[in-house]
Amino acid sequence: MFFFFFKFDPYIAIIGDIKNSKNIEERGKFQNKLNKILNEINEIYSDSISSNFTITLGDEFQGLLHSGEHVMDIIQYIKKESYPIKIRFGIGIGAITTDINSAISIGADGPGYYKARDSIEQLKALEKKNESTYGDIQIKIDGDNNLQELSLNSILKLMYCIEKDWTKKQREVVNYVLFEKKNQTETAHYFNVTQSNIQQILSKTHFYAYKDAFDSVNKILSEVKYDNKL
């Protein structure tokens, strides 16, 4: 059991920030695509969402969860559907001190969002320093949870080190196995290749280590729940 210590009702705020957004060709087209992706997230993971994922600026979006069990599924889905556009994610766990609009994530405020924003700014600062293992996901937790925060960020950095050099084809295979939950034979049939080829791809991508870490973060964050949700 991975214990968190809260003196408040915890929410999980997620802010997504598109990297190098000004360099994206056909920005309007991508924004429409992103809006479609967020609508899909809002539908698929509605049981965990308190405030729907919403584009807040041209290069940012945010959402609010009352349960952390699908945090990594949500982030991975957005990354999968947005590729090759890269996105940094700030996760903040804390209270929300204003009214929450379930339809759109605009107007709400509190430590949960402050922590998510701090996470985004820290990622940007590390990128400017050319830190090779800064990662693309950062989490900050309000309250007396420093060890829990450190442990989660260590896992997320290791996941980034595994993922950052995947090719487009490797990403397609990994995401198919992750989301469709298929075995190697079924995956080989889907991609019209041999089972041995899929095995090699999963080995080169360190898929099973990545999936263990992925599942661990989801399991740890599943303990963050606000039962009196909207």
Results as ranks from 00 to 15, higher is better:
residue 74 I to C: 07
residue 81 E to M: 15
residue 86 K to F: 10
residue 89 F to Q: 11
residue 73 D to I: 08
residue 27 R to K: 15
residue 57 L to Y: 10
residue 31 Q to W: 00
residue 47 D to M: 07
residue 29 K to V: 15
residue 41 I to S: 09
residue 47 D to C: 09
residue 77 Y to K: 13
residue 106 I to F: 09
residue 73 D to C: 06
residue 92 G to P: 02
residue 47 D to I: 11
residue 42 N to L: 02
residue 62 Q to W: 00
residue 95 A to E: 15
residue 67 S to G: 15
residue 98 T to H: 03
residue 45 Y to S: 01
residue 36 K to A: 11
residue 41 I to D: 13
residue 55 I to F: 05
residue 29 K to Y: 11
residue 43 E to N: 15
residue 39 N to F: 03
residue 92 G to D: 02
residue 88 R to N: 14
residue 86 K to H: 11
residue 51 S to E: 09
residue 68 G to Q: 05
residue 109 D to K: 01
residue 57 L to K: 12
residue 36 K to R: 13
residue 32 N to D: 13
residue 54 T to M: 06
residue 68 G to K: 05
residue 104 I to Q: 12
residue 27 R to I: 13
residue 93 I to A: 09
residue 35 N to L: 07
residue 72 M to E: 10
residue 48 S to E: 15
residue 93 I to P: 05
residue 83 Y to M: 07
residue 70 H to L: 11
residue 91 I to Q: 00
residue 83 Y to S: 14
residue 49 I to Q: 03
residue 74 I to N: 07
residue 94 G to T: 14
residue 77 Y to A: 06
residue 84 P to L: 06
residue 80 K to W: 13
residue 47 D to V: 10
residue 96 I to S: 12
residue 53 F to N: 01
residue 61 F to N: 09
residue 55 I to A: 11
residue 57 L to G: 05
residue 107 G to V: 02
residue 95 A to F: 12
residue 57 L to S: 10
residue 38 L to V: 06
residue 108 A to R: 11
residue 108 A to W: 15
residue 65 L to M: 12
residue 63 G to Y: 00
residue 69 E to K: 15
residue 38 L to C: 08
residue 31 Q to A: 10
residue 105 S to P: 00
residue 81 E to G: 10
residue 52 N to L: 04
residue 39 N to L: 10
residue 61 F to V: 03
residue 47 D to Q: 11
residue 87 I to F: 02
residue 105 S to N: 04
residue 26 E to P: 04
residue 50 S to A: 14
residue 105 S to K: 00
residue 106 I to T: 13
residue 58 G to C: 07
residue 91 I to P: 00
residue 97 T to F: 09
residue 68 G to Y: 07
residue 33 K to M: 10
residue 42 N to K: 01
residue 69 E to P: 05
residue 91 I to W: 00
residue 64 L to D: 03
residue 58 G to L: 04
residue 50 S to L: 06
residue 26 E to C: 14
residue 59 D to A: 03
residue 64 L to W: 03
residue 27 R to F: 14
residue 63 G to M: 01
residue 57 L to N: 11
residue 76 Q to C: 13
residue 40 E to V: 04
residue 36 K to T: 15
residue 85 I to A: 08
residue 93 I to N: 04
residue 104 I to E: 13
residue 83 Y to R: 08
residue 95 A to M: 11
residue 63 G to D: 02
residue 77 Y to R: 11
residue 47 D to R: 07
residue 59 D to K: 03
residue 87 I to P: 02
residue 105 S to G: 00
residue 56 T to L: 02
residue 103 A to K: 14
residue 109 D to T: 07
residue 41 I to A: 10
residue 50 S to G: 09
residue 27 R to W: 13
residue 60 E to I: 05
residue 86 K to P: 03
residue 54 T to N: 03
residue 107 G to C: 04
residue 43 E to D: 14
